[in-house]
Write a protein that binds this DNA or RNA. Structure first.
Lengths: 108, 108
DNA sequence: GCACACTACTGTGCAATGCGCGGTAGTGGC
DNA sequence: GCCACTACCGCGCATTGCACAGTAGTGTGC
């Protein structure tokens, strides 16, 4: 198992988490995820996730010019996105708890 | 997000965990996972995972007759399986920790 | 002795999603 | 002009969980 498989279904949550902290554009989200420890995340995955979340109505989007390169497409959470974030965080936490109890039994 | 996506890449670990506790056959593993809280796990997924892990050399396999139905194909961890289990558990735990720090930042 | 339910395993095809790779563009340094 | 870095997008692939259908053994009710 490399963590690429672990990301399945959780990348949405991770992206929602960084955007909940503050709006960001694709390249920036990639950097923030990597700094947070998700070093193996691919840029294409993040762009794809952002587009998917936007299409799902969870994100707002606005374009801004930049001094240091091409334009940046910023994304931010809207109400739908925030409740999606909360719901997914809950699901994730209970899932983690379930896994924790499973793993403990064989080792405690 | 339904937890089916969360299972991606983690079902291996979950199956290794229940087999580490004690040998089991497919149907039994499904039941134990569901009792542990993974209620949405599909039987075909578990059988597929068992076959995959067996093919990867992580499991031993032996067939036993049963009083209450057809034969049962038992699976158990071998050395490879145990080290795979330990490695995946470590990866999982550090991944969970990374996610936890990500989620915390946006909420206090 | 036949239909049915429950146990137990298998195969096929599908859908979701992360990724590698390559392509397009803008800005600045040499 | 060429290259590096920033920034974004599209294509096709691999993995993997699942629904569904099928095979088979055992016991129950009639």
């Amino acid at each position: 198992m490399d963590s690429s498989q672990l990301l399945k279904g959780v990348l949405d949550l991770a992206v929602l988490a960084v955007l909940d902290e503050r709006d960001g554009y694709g390249y920036d989200v990639v950097r923030r995820l990597r700094e947070a420890g998700l070093v193996e995340v691919g840029d294409a995955s993040v762009y794809g996730t952002l587009r998917r979340l936007y299409k799902a109505g969870a994100l707002t989007s606005y374009v801004m010019a930049s001094d240091e390169g091409p334009h940046r497409k910023y994304y931010g959470l809207n109400e739908t996105g925030r409740s999606m974030y909360a719901a997914q965080a809950r699901t994730w936490n209970s899932f983690v708890a379930t896994m924790a109890s499973l793993l403990k039994e064989g080792r405690g």
